[in-house]
Structure formats: C-alpha cells, structure tokens
Design a protein around this nucleic acid. Structure first.
Length: 577
DNA sequence: GCCGTTTTCGGCCCGACTGTTTTCAGTCG
C-alpha cells in the first residue's frame, strides 16, 4: 500500500462518513488527515514502525492506529464496512455541481438513485422534483450539471487557464468603474492545475462591474449572479467567479479568495489569538487591542505578526512558522533567469532550427541556451545517433564563434535512460558534450523498486549533469510511473546531480511539493522549458511560478547563474573525486 | 476525530447564492 492509495482511502472514508450523516467535524478530520499525509514528506513505513504517525499534524491517535493497521495488514475494515452501505457508483454524484452529501443521501434513500444514469431518469420523470427540498429548477440544474460533466473534465492546465484569466483581467481593468483588480485563487498561488478563476474587483459601482462581467463575450453561461458574487462558465467549461467589494475591503477579499483554504484557517486562527476576527471584508477587534490600519495585504500580514507571505507559498506547509521567524526565503523571479537547458530543435522533434531557437533565446534576453535533442533510442522523436549528435556539436561551435561574449549555446543531449538504467550513449560520447539531461521515455511499467534503481543507476553516471522529468507524468492525462522520489533526491544529492523542473505545461515536475526536501538535501534545480519551438521558451515564466511554490531561491536554481559561472557548474560532477 | 497561550472539554471559518421555502437548508469556495 503506497501513500497515494492510503490518501485515497482516507478521503473516501471522509466522504462515506458524510453520506452516513456523521458529525461534520469527524468528516473533516478524515479529509484533513488525507491532506496531511499527502504533503508529508517522510516515509510511512518508518513512521508506523516508530509509532510517530500521530505526530503528523492533522493525524491523531485514532487515525494513526487505523493507518498502522492498514499498513500492517493491507486491510481497512472501518472503510470497508462504511463502503458496504453504499453502491460504488454513488461517488460520481459528488462530481456534479449542486449535489452534496445530504442531497445524494436523500436521492439514494428515497429514490434509490445510485449513480448519474439513475439520476438522469428521476430528473426526467419528475420524481426528483417531487421530493421535499427539491423542485423543478433543481432537476433542470442537475440535467445541466450532468451535461457539463460529460463535456468537460473540470480541471485545467495552468497555461490554458492563464490565457482566459489574463484576457478577462485586462478587459476588466479597462472598465471605468474598476478601481483595483486581481485574479486570486489557485491561479494566483500558481497551482499547476486550476479548477476555476477567481476575480476580485474593488469598485464603487458593483452593479456595473457585475453586469459587464456576466455579459462579456467570453461568457458562455451564467451560473449565479448576485450583488457581490457572480459565477460564469467560460470556453472549455472553465468556471470564473467575480467578487466585487469596496476599496477598503479589497486587501481582505484578495487575501481570502487567494487562499488556500488551509492558509486562510491559519490566518483566521492568528486573528482570533489576538482577540480579532478576520473575514473577506475586514479585520475587526472583538476582545483585543485596536486593529492597525490595513491598506494592502502586506499590512494584514504585519498586523498578524508575520512577514509578507508570497501567494505561491500559501498552502499551510510551513509558511506561518517561517514568516513568524523571519526565515521566509526570497523567492526566485523570472528576471533572475540567465539561460536554460533542455530545448529541442528540428534535429529531433522540435519545430524550429538551432539558429531560430538561439535567436529566440537572445530576444528573451537570455545569456545562454542549452540544446538537448533526443537520443537515438527515442525513434518516435527522431532521436540523434552519435554521428548526427557530433554534427550538431559542430554547428553549435560555429554559431558560438559568431556570438561574441554576451551569448553562448551549450551542446547537450536529452539522453534516454534505458530500462536497466544504462544510458543511450557511451561515456566517451557523453563526455564530448557540455552537459547531459537524462530522462526516462520508455518502459514505464516497472515496479517502484526497479524504476527507482534504474533512475539512480543513471544519475550515478558522472556524465549525467541533470535528471529530466522525474516521474513521466502528464497532468490530467497520464499518471506518474511509480518511483521512490525521496530515494532519487538522496541519490541526486550524493552524486551532485541537478534535478530538472520541467515546465512543459503538462509536466511541471519535479513537483513543487518535493522541492523543499530536495533543497534541504542540497540538490540544485534547473528550470527547463522542454521547448519544442521558439514559443515554448515562454513557458519559463510558468516554471518560475512552480519553482517559487517549491520555496526555491535564485541560489538554488542553476540557470540563474551568469554565463561566466554556469560552465563550471555543468562540469562540476565530472571533476568530482 | 483533532487539538490545546481558550489545554482533556468543547470548540472546530463563515459568508454568498440558490431554490425551496415563509425562515431556512444545502452547496460552494
């Protein structure tokens, strides 16, 4: 039983308790425990053996015992007993907008509705509308929600959401009644996948702004529209919420709607400790000292005894303790980047030539660009053999001769890690390059132990400068292959291997949740766009957002180093004793 | 079920919107 499976079991237990009508705080305890486990970096087996599971914040004695039992036996009788009371298909109903545990329970008990198909039936024949607390409008909304779910997954890559977010932001900003505007929510926190967009606007004329918003040409449907909140559906099914507040309330609304929910609870808790109450409109004194004036978010954090916490860090993963102790990192910024590695050209599966890629990098103001086309085993990507690789190296040397001191191309390769952990080229070939990115592109179905050993063997090679996309995941479409990430991080630290933060929209890995551990172990990061075209280089901006989410500073990101220093870093592993 | 500068009991975030209701429950974020 791995951590991911256990997290799923705890989540499902929470849902089942909710369906059963249990104490909502007990429900929350299971959901909290699932989340606590998900983000906790330690090893489960070790904690269970040492009896320290209950020391994880959010996990107490009862759940710790259950987890230990699951790990020991592979069985979770508490969950199994709950699950036996409801059909498995009932869970799909939670995915419909407008349906929660209470209504699902009523539908199941009163009408025997056990899934979406059955729900469609009772919506159509009028039986749902006849239930107490339900009505014709509810039935119609559920029919819509079913259609919505069928046509859209409901989750969106950051890059896709960004286009709509920035378009709407720019147009709202132009509206004469809009004094301040921000896109808050998970977009502002720079999550890799976005569920919806949250616009927060300060205005003296809420009606005008709301009317403009719901009538915008990008809006395909209005879900809700009130005095302070509107919800609409954008192309592709992305939901966008607008909150309109006064100028005075703006910093509070911005903070509240940026979240995360867990971060908000921390903020509120700190306010309560001071005898204050915090909500999306104000910080008010109830039984403490007078509250200081607050004009922007920074003032709010200061009032609560905290350094300003950047939105990317607001996940309640240690930011409060660090902000209180003045030990928050100064996060890396796009302007810090000096170059990047892992880029493709027409030599393998890229769409632009070497010259075009170099020119695009120079236009972006980068001082260096690493070229890492695929190696020969990646047939599907037209990978380079030794001869073509040598030819590309020649071309790079010729181009470099013409660039002068301000720009340089580095000759590398994205070398396949073969199933046994050996590399696609011999050491002599690799040694002739400036650097090597090693990546897994095939045979994903190994056991976790075999995959971990495969990757560790590869990065133990002195010619491997950095490790590419560590788990092979494609967000929203392909699960990561099983691999022991802490073990790979340990090995990277021991061997002096850089780990890539691949900022292809679907990859965005090494995942931000692991970077604090990597950083603690002394592993350095390279933010790589995995660009297959000149526009692909633009993704560096999104990569920076994820790096910030991983608490990374410019000192930990090698491609923030100037051209004069980066060569030595690329060569460092080869010269290790 | 978790947690503790409110500390072993008694809280646990809370406001907006919708749809069904004549005062509120459910859902959502």
């Amino acid at each position: 039983m791995d951590k991911e499976q256990l997290v799923d079991l705890l989540e499902e237990t929470g849902r089942l308790l909710e369906l059963k009508g249990e104490n909502p705080f007990k429900v929350r305890a299971y959901l909290n425990a699932a989340r606590a486990l998900e983000t906790w970096p330690g090893g489960l087996e070790t904690a269970a053996r040492e009896g320290t599971l209950a020391e994880i914040p959010g996990i107490g004695k009862a759940i710790a015992e259950k987890i230990a039992g699951v790990l020991a036996s592979g069985e979770f009788p508490y969950h199994a007993a709950l699950k036996a009371a409801f059909p498995a298909t009932l869970f799909e109903l939670f995915e419909l907008q407008g349906l929660g545990a209470k209504k699902i329970r009523v539908l199941y008990e009163q009408l025997g509705v056990s899934g979406i198909e059955a729900l469609e039936g009772v919506c159509a024949d009028g039986r749902l509308a006849a239930l107490p607390g339900f009505g014709a409008k509810t039935a119609a909304n559920l029919v819509d929600a079913i259609a919505q779910r069928r046509s859209h997954a409901g989750r969106f890559l950051y890059e896709k959401a960004a286009v709509l977010a920035e378009t709407l932001r720019a147009e709202l900003r132009e509206h004469p009644a809009v004094a301040q505007i921000a896109v808050a929510g998970s977009y502002r926190r720079h999550k890799e996948v976005i569920g919806d967009l949250d616009f927060v606007v300060a205005t003296a004329d809420p009606e005008a702004v709301s009317a403009f918003f719901i009538a915008h040409p990008l809006v395909e449907g209005v879900i809700a529209s009130g005095a302070t909140k509107s919800s609409v559906r954008l192309p592709g099914g992305l939901q966008a919420d607008l909150r309109v507040v006064s100028n005075e309330a703006f910093p509070f609304a911005l903070n509240y709607f940026t979240g995360s929910k867990e971060h908000n609870i921390g903020m509120r808790h700190r306010a309560l400790q001071r005898g204050w109450t915090l909500n999306e409109y104000r910080l008010a004194n109830t039984s403490g000292e007078p509250v200081p004036p607050i004009h922007e978010e920074k003032d709010l954090y200061r009032a609560l005894g905290l350094d300003y916490i950047e939105p990317e860090l607001r996940e309640n993963l240690g930011e409060f303790a660090a902000a209180e102790a003045h030990t928050l990192p100064r996060l890396v910024e796009l302007a810090n980047l000096r170059g990047t590695f892992h880029n493709h050209t027409t030599a393998s599966d890229g769409r632009n030539t070497l010259e075009e890629m170099a020119e695009a990098a120079r236009e972006l103001g980068l001082a260096y660009l690493g070229i890492a086309d695929h190696s020969k085993s990646s047939f599907q990507a037209h990978g380079l053999d030794e001869k073509r690789l040598a030819g590309q190296g020649e071309a790079i040397r010729r181009l470099n001769a013409g660039y002068g001191a301000g720009f340089r191309l580095f000759a590398g390769v994205e070398c396949d890690i073969l199933p046994d952990g050996s590399l696609d080229f011999d050491d002599e070939t690799l040694a002739g390059l400036d650097y090597v990115v090693a990546s897994v592109h095939s045979v994903f179905n190994l056991s976790e132990a075999a995959m971990t050993a495969r990757i560790i063997r590869a990065i133990s090679n002195r010619q491997v400068t950095m490790l590419g996309h560590l788990t092979g995941r494609l967000l929203l479409s392909r699960k990561p292959y099983p691999v022991d990430i802490p073990a790979v991080i340990e090995a990277a630290a021991a061997t002096g291997t850089i780990i890539e933060l691949n900022c292809s929209a679907q990859r965005m890995e090494l995942d931000w949740r692991w970077w604090p551990l990597a950083k603690e172990k002394g592993v350095r990061c390279s933010i790589n766009p995995d660009a297959h075209s000149v526009t692909g280089l633009q993704r560096l901006a999104h990569g920076i957002g994820i790096a910030r989410k991983g608490w990374l500073t410019r000192g930990e990101v090698v491609n923030c180093l100037p051209l004069e220093e980066i060569g030595a870093v690329l060569a460092a592993k080869r010269s290790r004793a």
